[in-house]
């Protein structure tokens, strides 16, 4: 019962981040939403480890955290190249 509550709260967070990812007016907004989404997914993987009682999922969460960090940095570097006209 409580598991369903936690999963639904986290799922609503994923949904809101996803809406911002779809409607974000500028590329920077989309990357912010993607960053938030990634951190939430780390929590979801940890919750799956708790549900399935299998600690291997935590290793997946570690690797996912590292990849999400690299992804954010690469997107930020890419956006820095796109100078607007200000």
């Amino acid at each position: 019962m409580i598991d369903i509550l936690v999963f639904s709260l986290v799922g609503l967070g994923v949904l809101f981040a996803m809406i911002r990812l779809l409607i974000g007016p500028t590329p920077a907004d989309r990357v912010v939403a993607l960053d938030t989404f990634n951190i939430i997914v780390i929590g979801v993987i940890a919750l799956l480890a708790y549900q399935f009682k299998n600690s291997l999922y935590l290793d997946i969460a570690i690797v996912y955290a590292i990849l999400a960090f690299i992804e954010t940095i690469v997107f930020a570097r890419y956006l820095e190249g796109n100078h607007g006209d200000c």
Binding site: I2, L5, V6, L9, V10, L12, G13, F16, I19, G43
Partner: peptide, 19 residues
């Protein structure tokens, strides 16, 4: 369980803030 629910609430808050 209390910790997990608080964590879920803050995740929800993060998604809502981004939106």
């Amino acid at each position: 369980y209390v910790f997990m629910i608080i964590g879920g609430l803050f995740y929800l808050l993060g998604g809502l803030g981004v939106l």
